[in-house]
Design a binder for these strands. Structure first.
Lengths: 225, 225
DNA sequence: AAACCATAACTTGTATACAAGTGAATTTAT
DNA sequence: ATAAATTCACTTGTATACAAGTTATGGTTT
């Protein structure tokens, strides 16, 4: 795929993930083509790619829209991640390399800085979440499971947006950081018996909260019936 | 996506999975377009889709080829499946519904028939493997993890072909069936402690065998260096 | 006024002509 | 004869015109 097309694809992905493009927003081939000075053909390639990864829904001869958040996908992906990560962490536990440990501690330090900083609330949250991803991604990398991290990322549209919409408060961020710390401690000390519950609580804790369903109805995919 | 396109896509997928189209085979847009009486545009859509799921590799301005089997993908996917399935089976263990049990036993009976049948070797192997997939898919379904089964299927090109190339002998099929039986017994009897090893041996046993690397070199992706 | 039908303005789907790389064959120069 | 340069046949990438389905609009009929 040519670079210009990849750039546009990334741009659209970011806009959708950041909710700048809200679920339901119409994505028109001709509009995009004009905006980027391209013909419809390459634009169609891009939209096909976005559709295959769940970013948009294509309704033949009608139009394309930004997909609504699919809570089923969120539930399934968090299940997958909690199962995988608890295993990965156990694999890692006795034999984590020292530079890996440094990398993880470095990320936690940055998360601490982030919490204590005085920037705007949404910016702080975004930055914290980037670091959160970095922490988990590093765990995958250290265990030689980069491949699986990337695989999951390809299906993360719904979970990423779900997470962003949670208006996490300062004490929630502190809790997340502390859980990271505890996970790291378990790895270093080899306390494998604690890991299952830790990871479960960290990733799956407040899934299926009614709060979310009630407050973001217009963003959520209606169950097909 | 229109039906004709979907049909062609499925046809190509089957041909690639069955190794009728060997890794490295050139897939030309114009050739496909002529063969199916279509223009290049819809054919391109199809090829884009196949590329995103790893079936083919697109070399811009050069051509497209059927992808070589990526042993890294095989290793990662079998790891993912062994981790997931042992968890799913544990989830299922105490509370499996009776009709689910019937369905699983029915599949095992068919596998037994298959082994004892006198059909041609490759046909027998193919039929056995379809039943193998049915068994595992049913486990996912019963645990409410259909979504994750489908997700994994989208990345199964390399594992499926790897498995097919293994010239399983009759006693290997018997062993696979017996392992299925043991897994089912564990579920019914609630013997969760046995499950980890059982699933690991069943799915990950002879991964990374040198036999495969030596005998199917021409099908395998060379490590990038 | 309400129901219905035709039409027009949209959308994406497809066909085709042309652009632009790539690599091998051929020609040319040394 | 050999090496370099060029041309040509091939590939996919892009632009554009047209086909075909969908939906809203407005006029007609009842």
């Amino acid at each position: 795929m040519t670079n210009k097309k990849k750039d546009i694809m990334e741009k659209l992905k970011k806009a959708i993930l950041s909710l700048e493009l809200k679920p339901g927003t119409i994505i028109s081939e001709t509009a995009l083509a004009e905006k980027f000075n391209l013909s419809r053909t390459p634009v169609r390639d891009i939209l096909k790619g976005l559709a295959l990864q769940g970013y948009i829904d294509i309704y033949p001869k009608k139009g394309n829209i930004v997909s609504y958040i699919d809570l089923e996908s969120v539930e399934q992906i968090t299940y997958l991640r909690s199962i995988l990560e608890k295993e990965i962490i156990k694999d890692l536990s006795p034999n984590i390399p020292i530079n890996g440990l440094h990398k993880l501690r470095d990320i936690l330090a940055k998360q601490k800085d982030c919490i204590e900083s005085s920037e705007k609330n949404q910016d702080k949250l975004d930055r914290f979440m980037v670091l959160d991803d970095a922490f988990h991604k590093t765990l995958f990398e250290l265990a030689g499971r980069n491949f699986l991290w990337d695989l999951i990322q390809q299906f993360n549209v719904h979970y990423m947006r779900y997470r962003k919409l949670h208006a996490f408060k300062e004490d929630k961020l502190k809790k997340l950081l502390q859980e990271h710390q505890e996970i790291l401690d378990c790895i270093v000390l080899g306390q494998k018996d604690k890991i299952d519950d830790l990871v479960y609580n960290h990733i799956r804790a407040d899934i299926n909260s009614l709060y979310f369903r009630e407050n973001f109805m217009e963003y959520i995919k209606k169950p097909s019936n």
